[in-house]
Amino acid sequence: MPVFVRRNGEMVDKVTGLPMLSAEDRAKPVAVPYIMSDIPEYRSPIDGRVIGSRNQRRDDLKRHGCVEYEPSISPTKGKIRNKAFAAKRGLKVSEEYL
């Protein structure tokens, strides 16, 4: 079984140097894996611990019973409707809640 490595921005066979091609179309290069860099270090707004990786972020959210913000799970879809909340923070109430 061939082993593929990245050389000059292209996935190639480690031994032969031939480009990695898709099974359906041998002339078309296959999609390569995307490597996502880690997140910058920050302090947790919940307990002040330093968070320096995606794994630490997941653990921090889980430890405190939190979830990643997703507008679709918000009943107001991220819009502000509470006048006191908005006034205290210098924000505006969304038009549909005036």
Rank of each mutant, 00 (worst) to 15 (best):
P40M: 01
N8F: 12
R58I: 08
S22N: 12
I35S: 08
R54N: 10
I73C: 02
R63V: 07
Y42E: 07
S74G: 07
A27F: 05
I39C: 01
P45K: 02
S22Q: 14
R58Q: 09
D60C: 13
P33V: 05
P29N: 08
G9Y: 04
V5H: 06
Q56E: 15
Y69D: 07
E24P: 08
E68L: 04
P71E: 01
D47P: 00
A27Y: 05
M20K: 14
S37V: 06
S53T: 15
K28Q: 14
M20G: 00
D60S: 13
E10G: 10
G48D: 01
S53F: 03
Y42K: 10
D13K: 00
C66G: 03
I35L: 11
F4Y: 15
A23Q: 10
G48Y: 01
V30G: 07
K14G: 03
G9W: 10
V12L: 07
H64V: 04
R6C: 12
Y34C: 03
R49S: 14
A31N: 06
M20V: 06
P45Q: 02
E24R: 13
S44E: 05
R7K: 15
R57Y: 11
L18P: 00
G65D: 03
R58C: 06
H64N: 11
R6K: 15
N55P: 00
D13H: 04
I39L: 07
G48K: 02
S22M: 12
K14M: 08
Q56A: 15
R49C: 09
R26M: 04
E41G: 03
V12T: 03
R49I: 09
A27G: 10
R63Y: 10
D38E: 15
P29V: 07
S72V: 11
I73R: 13
E68S: 03
I39S: 01
E24V: 11
R58N: 09
S53D: 09
S74M: 12
V15A: 14
Y42Q: 11
V15F: 09
L18E: 10
P45W: 01
E68A: 04
M11C: 14
P45M: 01
Q56F: 03
V12W: 02
D13R: 00
D60K: 03
R26Y: 02
L21T: 12
I35M: 08
M36R: 14
R6M: 12
P19V: 00
R43Q: 06
E68R: 04
I51T: 00
S53I: 07
R57T: 06
S72P: 06
R57H: 13
S22R: 13
I39H: 03
P33K: 10
V15D: 15
Y42G: 05
L18G: 01
M11Y: 11
G52T: 05
G52C: 02
T16E: 04
R6A: 12
L61R: 08
Y34H: 04
D59A: 12
P71T: 02
I46C: 07
G17R: 03
S44V: 10
P71V: 01
I51S: 00
P33Q: 05
V67Q: 08
Y69W: 14
V12M: 04
V32A: 15
I35W: 09
Y34P: 00
F4R: 06
G52W: 04
P71K: 01
V67I: 08
L21C: 10
D38L: 11
D38R: 11
